[in-house]
Design a protein around this nucleic acid. Structure first.
Lengths: 189, 189
DNA sequence: GCTGAAATTGTCACAATTGTCGCGTTTGAC
DNA sequence: GTCAAACGCGACAATTGTGACAATTTCAGC
C-alpha cells in the first residue's frame, strides 16, 4: 500500500475490514468505482474514489486518508498582530502561515490550501470585502472558512458577514474567543 | 520524466501506480505498444500510445496528458494593454484571463492554473520582481512560464530575467513578437 | 420475540497476474 | 570520460479474480 495513489481490492478489504470477495462484489455492483488493469482485470481504486466511498457510507477513514493537520492563513500586515494570532493557533494545534500583502494572500490560497483564513479588513492595497467576494465566487476557494478580525465598527462587520464571511472578531481580540471561533469553523463535519 | 514525449517503463509504472516489471510484461504481451532502444532493448512508449492505453482501460490520466487549452493569465492594471494582449492571444488559440491587482494575480495562479503569465513589472501595490521570486520559490507554481512585458529599461529587464522570468518584451510590444514568444514558451515539449 | 425467505457476506481452491529481489547492463547528467 | 540512477530479465513469492457453496445478516409478517 505504502501511501499509494491507488488501492487494490485487497487493500480496500483490509481498510474496510471485510472480505476481499465482498469488495469485488461492490465493484461489480457499481457501488465502488474503479478501473481494471489490462492483465486479468485486477481492480484498482483511486484514493479519491475510496475516500468518497468511505464518507458516503459513514465508514471510518484509515490514517492515510484522514485530512492532514488543519491550516490557517493569517492575512495581516501588522507583524505583531500576526505573531499573536500565530501563537494562539499553534498552541491549539493548527499549522499557520502569514500573508502580509495582496499578492501573497491570493497566491497562498492555492499554494498553502488553508482550511481557514483570518482576514484583516483594512490592509493597504487590499480591500477585504473584495477578498471575501472573490473567495466566495470561485469554486476552488469557496470552501475556505473566513474569519474577519478587524477594528472596524459593527456596521462594517455586519457588511463583511453579508459578503460571505463566516464569522467576525473585533480587534483587539480575546485569545480564548479566537481559539473557540477557529475551532468551531474548522470542526470536522 | 520531465514532460517527455516518450515514456520509459519506469515512467509508466509510476503513472499507473504499478510495478515496473508489470509494465514490461504488458509490453511483452502487446497490451501496451512501444518501441525498443537499440542498446539492450530499453522500452519507450509514445505519449499518444500511453494516452490511448490509459483511456482504453479507464485509468486516470496524469496532468501532463490531460488535453487542455493553454491558459494565459495577463497581469496588467492598464485595461487597454490587457485588452490588446487578450486580443492577440485569443486569436492564436489561447484562453486568457486578466488580473489587475496583486490579490487577483495571486489568487488566479491557483484558481485559473495558467500555463503562462504575462507580467507588468510596475503595477501600483505589486512588485513584479517579488512576484517572479515568489512563483519560482513555490513548488506548486514553479512550472508557470513568466513573460515580462514592461516599459522599464534593459537593465531592469535583465534583472527580471535573473530573478526567474523566462523572457521579456519591451512595451509597447509588437503583436507578432508577442505571439511568437508565448508560443515558444508554451510549446508542448 | 419468533420465523423464514431473501440478500449479503465469508470461505476455499485454483489458475493467472502482479510484486520482489538480485545481477549485470545501459542511460543520462555532470 | 565518470559515475549514479534507471533498466531488463529471470526466478520465486504474494496477491488477485472467479465460481460454488456455506454462514450470516436483514426484515417483513406473525
Amino acid at each position: 500500500m505504502t501511501s499509494a495513489r491507488t488501492y487494490s481490492s485487497g487493500d480496500v478489504a483490509k481498510i474496510c475490514d471485510v472480505n476481499q470477495r465482498t469488495v469485488i462484489r461492490w465493484i461489480d455492483r457499481g457501488e465502488l468505482i474503479g478501473f481494471k488493469l489490462p492483465g486479468r482485470g485486477n481492480n484498482r481504486i483511486t484514493s479519491e474514489e475510496l475516500f468518497r466511498f468511505l464518507q458516503r457510507n459513514g465508514m471510518p477513514l484509515p490514517p492515510e486518508l484522514q485530512p492532514a493537520e488543519r491550516r490557517v492563513l493569517i492575512v495581516d500586515d501588522d507583524k505583531n498582530v500576526a505573531l499573536a494570532l500565530q501563537r494562539v493557533l499553534r498552541r491549539i494545534g493548527y499549522h499557520t502561515r502569514v500573508a502580509d500583502d495582496g499578492f501573497r494572500t491570493g497566491a497562498l490560497l492555492g499554494a498553502y490550501q488553508p482550511d481557514l483564513i483570518t482576514l484583516d479588513l483594512s490592509m493597504p492595497g487590499l480591500d477585504g470585502f473584495d477578498v471575501i467576494r472573490f473567495i466566495r465566487h470561485h469554486e476552488s476557494y469557496r470552501h475556505i472558512r473566513i474569519l474577519v478580525i478587524s477594528g472596524l465598527d459593527d456596521i462594517q462587520l455586519q457588511r463583511a458577514r453579508e459578503s460571505g464571511a463566516d464569522a467576525c472578531l473585533p480587534k483587539p481580540f480575546d485569545n480564548q474567543e479566537l481559539a473557540d471561533q477557529v475551532c468551531a469553523l474548522t470542526a470536522r463535519s
